[in-house]
Design a protein around this nucleic acid. Structure first.
Lengths: 105, 105
DNA sequence: TTAACATTTCTATAATATTGGAAATGTAGA
DNA sequence: TCTACATTTCCAATATTATAGAAATGTTAA
């Protein structure tokens, strides 16, 4: 992963509204949640929600698909795992005993 | 972990200079690296480096200790792991088969 | 086609973050 | 104490981000 990619992803998560959205989607699983349902659960006005979903999409952390007139968002677990791997890469000065294997979701 | 804590940590990492510093410290291990050595390795002027180290410290992602006239910074692996655990918490809608255990560094 | 609904884009305002030179602070050895 | 060095604080200019109302776009069902 390039550092620019990681910074974009981290910046996307470094905001309370977006972090809430992302965690909700992580917990929701592959099927995902419609934009409107997200806004309702989290109490976010449509324009604001759309702004934040765009940031998360642009960062590659969420995916969207259209179903009828709903747009359904879901977490991109692969990208999350890559980000975590990037953060912890070559950690602990090679003192491997301290590091459990990287998680995979 | 509270969401505010996670946002502060993620914001600290969501900046190229700080992410470089943090990753360098993660890879350096427990002993850490002096501020000056960090600045030299990464080509960052003292004032800028100090500004960013403060953000990382405030976020709890790095620790510092004074040795003589050097200030030595090191990664706080525990806080990093907590952040990762927060991101991945209750993931995949309980479809536990998909999720390896959380890493521990 | 028309009405109802879901979502996004447009827009302006307000708030926050980044940069690095210069000066200040703190420490150690002679 | 004096000097050299390591690091931090101060500061002002510049750039980036968040918010949400209103309007626009796209979709479905009748």
């Amino acid at each position: 992963m390039k550092i620019e990619t990681a910074v974009v992803a981290l910046a996307a998560l470094a905001q309370e509204t977006r972090l809430s959205i992302f965690r909700l989607l992580v917990q929701a699983g592959k099927e995902g949640v419609a934009a409107g349902a997200l806004g309702e659960k989290l109490g976010i006005p449509p324009a604001t929600l759309s702004f934040h979903l765009k940031a998360l999409s642009h960062a590659g952390l969420v995916r969207s698909r259209t179903e009828g007139r709903f747009v359904i968002y879901s977490a991109n677990y692969g990208e999350m795992d890559k980000l975590i791997a990037y953060l912890t890469e070559h950690c602990c000065a090679g003192d491997a005993g301290q590091c459990a294997p990287v998680r995979k979701c």
